[in-house]
């Protein structure tokens, strides 16, 4: 199946490595993408918290473009984009007033239902066996805390693919790479999201709690599937260190980077060197065997 691709703004800038690793991985797994032509921002948090009409129109413009391009299934790797797209689709499906308002704004009539998938659904649907078949590197030294954040699994009535409180789909993918996963409490606890700039203090506190819980439960790496979560959990560790001097750097990987590692790609190729925290699989091996 050919997917439409909606990268979203973060994947062209602060989350470049997510885009780089995703493209490398799906290429290796034989999945193909068509990027949506001239896509625009989904409106993100800023639109829906200030202007509902605007947020629906910005999100639906991309669905309109996908439809015009003949793409029935699209992948939105950014959890926030995914959430805005499916919520907007759900609203125009349920409320004829919003549908008409949005169609008027975009001068379009929505004809079919373009299906939007998140990154977990992509690998669950068409990649799990392929990952296992193509594994080149042993990752069993990795104890991963799978962090879903908020927007992949909520609201469950609309996302309809995993449990909102106790999701397990990412664990299935991570285990397919050969890495181990840990049971922990903060899989779906909020990292502070869009407050990263205006209220960094909140983000630092919330993200610190998440990292600490992962460490307490024996994780040596965190795996995420959202650029905003990654920024807060990875880049904000410097601010964390200032506020909590005993904080120890903890590596945070995108799910696609972990898959790439298992497929035999190296850290640099996957863009892992673009992170703020250091991660070298060889180091993890050394540390673990030193402890053992």
């Amino acid at each position: 199946m050919k997917y439409g691709y909606f990268p979203g703004c973060s994947l062209t800038s602060s989350a470049k490595e997510y885009d780089i690793s995703l493209r490398k991985v799906i290429d290796k797994l034989g999945i193909s993408f068509d990027e949506i032509n001239d896509w625009s921002c989904c409106g993100a948090t800023s639109a829906h918290v200030t202007n509902h009409k605007l947020s629906t129109a910005l999100a639906m413009r991309n669905i309109m473009l996908a439809e015009q391009q003949g793409l029935d299934n699209i992948i939105a790797p950014c959890a926030a984009c995914y959430n805005r797209l499916i919520i907007s689709q759900n609203e125009i499906g349920k409320h004829t007033g919003i549908r008409k308002e949005t169609e008027d704004l975009l001068s379009v009539k929505f004809k079919k239902d373009v299906k939007v998938f998140n990154i977990l659904e992509l690998f669950l649907k068409s990649g799990l066996n392929k990952i296992i078949e193509n594994r080149k590197r042993e990752l069993s030294e990795l104890k991963a805390a799978c962090y879903y954040g908020c927007l992949l699994v909520r609201p469950a009535a609309i996302t309809k693919f995993d449990d909102a409180e106790e999701p397990e789909s990412m664990e299935k993918i991570v285990e397919a790479t050969g890495a181990d996963t840990v049971d922990w409490n903060y899989k779906t606890e909020c990292c502070g999201a869009a407050h990263s700039i205006a209220r960094r203090d909140i983000v630092v506190d919330l993200s610190k709690k998440i990292i600490d819980d992962a460490i307490t439960h024996g994780a040596n790496v965190m795996v995420v599937a959202c650029p905003m979560c990654h920024t807060n959990l990875d880049m904000r560790q410097r601010a964390m260190k200032r506020k909590y001097p005993d904080h120890k750097e903890f590596p945070v990987l995108y799910l696609t980077e972990l898959i790439g590692l298992s497929l035999g790609m190296d850290e640099k190729e996957l863009g892992i060197d673009l992170h703020y925290t250091n991660f070298k699989y060889a180091d993890t091996l050394l540390n673990n065997s030193a402890k053992g």
Binding site: R154, P155, A164, E189, C190, A193, H195
Partner: peptide, 9 residues
């Protein structure tokens, strides 16, 4: 409110 939707679900 960070819009995390925990309350909503």
């Amino acid at each position: 409110c960070a819009g995390c939707l925990a309350c909503s679900v």
